[in-house]
């Protein structure tokens, strides 16, 4: 079992203005923890991408949906779970390919950035039910111990 040092749960309307809020919350949680400044930038991008996906793809810009976030800090690092109850992803493997996007004028880099900037990314999705993204970033000390 993961030893929880701090946990924050957040739920908000599926509107783009709230993406800033998600980044601010995770940044505040990481302050004073064993993360470097580039680590913090990485986590902010990953959170931004996951929440943007929930709003754009999950809820297709429908503002009445809700996005659910759980940030959990343990001695090993930071776990982020981002969930929506939107339309789900038809083909997860395809969605995770670079430059693939179902929307025009989008770069298809959301999952590429999540995978590049976090140490672990898991996606669970069901059509018509929603999508759950779980990501993990190891704390600096854990990284050193592993190496």
């Amino acid at each position: 079992m993961m030893q929880v040092k701090n946990q924050v749960k957040l739920e908000f309307s599926s509107i783009p203005e709230n993406i800033t809020l998600a980044r601010v919350v995770v940044a505040a949680m990481l302050a004073g923890m064993d993360f470097t400044l580039p680590d913090l930038d990485d986590v902010k991008v990953a959170v931004s991408e996951a929440v943007s996906n929930a709003i754009l793809h999950g809820y297709q810009n429908r503002p009445t949906g809700f996005v659910y976030l759980v940030f959990t800090v343990s001695p090993e690092g930071l776990e982020i779970v981002i969930e929506d109850y939107g339309r789900g992803i038809a083909d997860i493997e395809k969605a995770m390919e670079p430059a693939f996007s179902t929307l025009p004028d989008r770069m298809g880099l959301g999952f590429v950035f999540m995978k590049s900037f976090m140490d672990l990314v898991e996606v669970d999705s069901q059509l018509g039910r929603g999508t759950r993204v779980r990501m993990f970033k190891y704390a600096f000390q854990t990284m050193q111990a592993v190496q």
């Binding site: 980044r23 902010k44 931004s48 991408e49 943007s52 004028d105 770069m107």
Partner: peptide
Amino acid sequence: KFIDSSGLGLVLG
């Protein structure tokens, strides 16, 4: 102060 794939999409577009 911050840019993600949406911001990059603006530049690419």
